[in-house]
Design a binder for these strands. Sequence first.
RNA 1: GUCCCCAUCGUCUAGCGGCCUAGGACUCCGCCCUUUCAAGGCGGCAGCGCCGGUUCGAAUCCGGUUGGGGAUACCA
Length: 471
Amino acid sequence: MALFDKAWAIKTGGAFVLRIEDTDQARLVEGSEQQIYESLRWLGLDADESPEVGGPYAPYKQSERLDTYRPYVDQLIEAGHAYYCWCSGERLAQMRADQQASKQADTGYDRLCLGKTREERAALPGFSETPVVRMLIPEDVDLTFDDLIRGQVRAPMPDDQVILKADGFPTYHLAVVVDDHLMGITTVVRGEEWISSTPKHRLLYRWLGWDEPDYAHMPLLRNPDKSKISKRKNPAARLLWFREQGYLPEALRNFLQLLAYPPAEGDQEVSSFTEFVEQFDWSKISTVGPIFDTKKLDWLNGVYLRALPTDELADRIIEYALASGQLAEITPARTEVIRAATPLIAERLVTLAEAMPKIAFLFADDESLPINPEAVAKLTSDAPQALDAGIEVLGELDDWRTESIQSALKTRLVDEMGLKPKFAFAPERVALTGEQVSPPLFESMEILGKQATLARLRRLRELISAGGQSQ
RNA sequence: GUCCCCAUCGUCUAGCGGCCUAGGACUCCGCCCUUUCAAGGCGGCAGCGCCGGUUCGAAUCCGGUUGGGGAUACCA
């Protein structure tokens, strides 16, 4: 949502305002506000005005604006558009249960309190000391409105919605209208689930004599089981989860864009935020709730990873390794190795999280490098000779660069000994990295250095003799 | 239950009456490249939910039906 808000704000020269709608005391969650700021910052979608940075209409947190709402409530009551209601929660629950049971068509509030004084109402059952204030929805409410994304939309008939709660807090419905008007909001972008509330909001605008904003109701993201996305069913509902998994914010941004918006000219799926803003158009947004499937994100992340300049990618790998605990601390020596190794793994990465494990062998001790027994078991009977030859030819090599290493080994193992490259280099790979699969071999040797390379080749050679090669 | 929204490959989508024997991307499967794994190149599998209408002609328009989602709170 913020993505589209921001795009629209930039495109029209407006401001992207972040307001915290914390009118439900019972649902306050520790740290969630901070998480919102953090997520937006990470994605590069910082708000122009927010509780954090302030702005001309501060405060931007509804719990700090309680005094703002009260006068409008009184105004509505005086005008006869709203009324007090003393019905207890139990009575309302009972009323709803009865309505359900009798399969009535309309299920709204039964207006028991309408037109009654406190004393009159107190004489009836289900009375609560602290009243709420409800809107008096007229028979002829306008149920249709124009939506930027969907065109003309029809919404359900609302019931007498509570606008001021017993604890003195406004409900979302009142607060959003008052704040949007006071803060000069011109475009309301929100989830599809708000379509049914829109007639109430429009009524409030009219009663208060204010100009209405435009509405854009976005489709709802869904879990793979098609239900509305939830943090319980889907860890990905928490944006920072992606940072923890090693995704790039620019890739996630691109992915989110694709989720509800068609690719740009020429089916260009990879597009920058700038390009997105340039051709942004509400009517192009899809009306279907997309399923949040991260397969495409994996691909996109790889695309963005590969597009990064080597040093920047190395920096991001280090940053991630530090934040995730893959690396306890960074030293100049480590930085150097990581930078040297980054080009080798750049096109092999899906996420930043995979980088360190792929180059862990570069940081291991020659004597304690873990060697995967399965990798050893798959070596052929040529392995001992290949290792011996490798040790010999590399031992004589002074020019320790990738090209010389490669040509020395190739000349001896492939050209002279007649081994197939596939089998010729497998033993050195296992010796060097402990695995069958690894970053490019000769480049790794160069980074590791002559001494370490030879030590590792010898170590595997001994291991094979000691273990007794079966084939 | 009632009301509202939505409906093209497994997924994200293009399509807005003929250009569609439905295009692209991801995934998956082959082949090529190749010291492993990737990346890259080439190719393949796979879809207009269903039934009626409108029309010379429907993925595109209309109605119904089915399916999915949402709302129905002193939650947002």
